[in-house]
Amino acid sequence: MTAVAPRTRALPLQAAATKRRRKYDPTRRSVALTIVMSLLLIYSLLPLFWLVINSTKTQEDLFGTFGLWFGNDFALFDNIGQTLTYNNGIFLRWLGNTVMYVVIGAGGATILATAAGYGLAKYQFPGRRAVFAIVLGAVAVPGTALAVPTFLMFSQVGLTNTPLSVIIPSLISPFGLYLMWVYAADAIPTELLEAARMDGASEARIFFTISMKLLTPGIVTVLLFAVVATWNNYFLPLIMLSDPQWYPLTLGLNQWNLQAIGVGSTPIFNLVITGSLLTIVPIIAIFLVLQRYWQSGLGAGGVKE
C-alpha cells in the first residue's frame, strides 16, 4: 500500500515520509479526542448513575443528602421489597402487563414487518409501489392524529381499557418495515430464490427455510427496536387504559409520581425511583446482550437510500 505513495509527489526523504504517515495513520489514538468524548459519555451516564445511587436511599435521605453520593442508610433492598409489595404488588402486575404487551405487540410487529419487508424486496406484484408510498407517507403522520380517532373507534367496539387496545396499534412498525425491506434487498440473493423455485419449493417453504436464516440479523434489529418502542410506550396506553390493573410500567410509575401532588396522599419518591431502576434494567440488559446483532443489522441497511 505504501509502495504507491510516491505516485503523487516524489518524497525521497525518509523523514518526510514517516512524518506524513504518522500524521495520517488512522490507527493513531488521540488522548484529547477521547477526553472530549468522555464528557459526552459522562452526560449519557449521569442520570443513570443518579438513579442507581438514589434507589439506595430512604425517602429522608433523598431530601437530606447530596444527590450524587450514597445516603446515610443503604436501603436498596428495602426499597426493592417495598416497590414489589406496595399496594398488593401492583408493580409486579404492571411488569406482567408490560411483558405481555411486548411479547405479543413487538413480536407480532416483527413478524408482520419481516414478511412485508421481504415481500416488498423480493417480489414484483401489482400495487407494490403504492404500498411503499402509503407506508412511507404514514410515517410523517403524528401519533396524536391517530391516537384520538383510534381511541374513538376502539371505544365504539368496546376495545378501550382492554389489553387489545394497546396491542393492536403496536403491531405496526413502519420503521421496521423499511429496515426489513432494505435489509432483505441486500441480504437475499435473488438467484438463490430462483434455484429453490426450480427445485419445486413453495414460496412459504422458501421463506421459512432459506430467507429467515439470512434475515436473522435484520429480524433481531427490528425486534429490538419494536421491543424498546413497546416497553417504553406511554402515550398509547395513557389514552386507551383507565383501569390501573392493565397499566404497563411506564403508566404505573407516572401514577406513583403523581401521588406526590395529590391532595391528602403521601409522596413515595423512593418507590418511583427504585421502580424506574427496575423498569430500565431488563431493557438495558437486552440491549447489551443483543448488541452484536443490532449493530450489524443497522449497519447493513439502516439508512441507505
Binding site: L45, P47, L51, L253, I280, I283
Partner: peptide
C-alpha cells in the same frame, strides 16, 4: 454503546430522572 444507551430508557423514566 454507552452514548446509545439512553435511547433504551423510557421517556417516562428519563423525564422523571431529569
Amino acid at each position: 454503546i454507552v452514548i446509545f444507551l439512553p435511547y433504551a430508557v423510557p421517556a417516562v423514566v428519563a423525564a422523571l430522572m431529569w
